[in-house]
Amino acid sequence: MTTPLIRPARPEDGPALAQLDRDTWSPLHAVQPKPQPPYDPFFDTDHRPRDYLVAEAEDGAPAGYIRLVPPTRLACNQHVRQIQGLAVAEWARGRGIARALLRAACAEAVRQGATRITLRVLGPNKPARTLYASEGFVVEGVLPGEFFLDGRYVDDVFMGRALS
C-alpha cells in the first residue's frame, strides 16, 4: 500500500470527522456513551483543528484521524504530547493508516519540541495495544477496573515512549 497523505485538519473537516467518529464508535475503545442526535460539533474550544492530523483518501475524504495535545497546561509538562483519539474508517482498515497516523503524530510531537509521547488505551483493545507496542510504546501503568463499560470493569492502560 502507498503511504496515505497525512495533513493537519482544517475547520471544514469537522462534519466528516464527526461522522467518522460516530461510524467508528465501539465499546472496545470508547469510554463515552454512543453518540446520539443532536450531535455536538466535532471541533470546539477544547478540540481544535490544529490538534488533529487527518489521513486523506485518494478522493480527499478523511480515512482517519489522530488527536495530539499536551497532556496538561503546566509549563513543567510541555515536553510531553499525548494521543487522545485515533480513528480509522472501517473501509480503510488494514491499509496501514493507523500506523501512518501514529508515526505522523510522533513526528509532529518532535516538531513541536516534545521529547516524550503518551496515550491511554482500554485493556481489552488488543489490536490497538499491539499496534502501539510495535511502534515502541510500552505499558507504564495500569488502572485496574477504572471504567465500567458494557457490563464489566475495564482496565485503563497508560503507555508511553521517548521521542528521539
Rank of each mutant, 00 (worst) to 15 (best):
A9T: 01
A9E: 01
R10L: 08
R10D: 04
E12F: 00
D13Y: 01
D13M: 03
A16N: 08
L17F: 08
L17T: 03
L17N: 10
Q19Y: 00
Q19N: 02
L20T: 05
L20F: 05
R22P: 02
T24P: 00
W25L: 01
W25N: 06
P27L: 08
P27M: 06
L28V: 13
L28P: 06
L28C: 05
L28Y: 07
L28H: 05
H29T: 15
H29R: 14
V31C: 14
Q32K: 11
Q32S: 04
Q32H: 11
P35W: 05
P35T: 09
P35G: 04
P35E: 07
P35I: 05
Q36E: 15
Q36R: 13
P38K: 07
D40T: 14
D40Q: 15
F42L: 08
F43K: 04
F43Y: 10
F43S: 07
T45V: 10
T45P: 00
T45E: 15
D46M: 08
H47T: 13
H47F: 14
R48F: 07
P49I: 10
P49C: 09
R50I: 07
D51E: 12
D51I: 02
D51H: 14
Y52R: 01
Y52P: 02
L53F: 05
L53R: 11
E56G: 04
E56A: 15
A57T: 11
D59F: 05
D59H: 03
G60K: 12
G60M: 13
P62T: 09
G64H: 10
Y65F: 15
Y65P: 02
I66T: 11
I66Q: 04
R67Y: 00
R67K: 10
L68W: 04
P71C: 09
T72P: 03
T72E: 04
R73Y: 14
R73H: 15
L74F: 14
L74T: 09
A75D: 14
A75Y: 11
C76D: 15
C76V: 15
Q78S: 13
H79V: 07
H79L: 09
V80L: 09
R81M: 12
Q82D: 09
Q84A: 11
Q84T: 11
A87L: 04
A87H: 05
V88I: 12
V88Y: 03
V88W: 03
A89P: 02
A89R: 08
A89D: 06
E90L: 12
W91R: 10
W91T: 11
W91N: 07
A92I: 00
R93I: 02
R93A: 02
R93L: 03
G94M: 02
R95K: 09
A98Y: 06
A98S: 10
A98R: 02
A109F: 00
A109M: 01
Q112W: 13
Q112H: 13
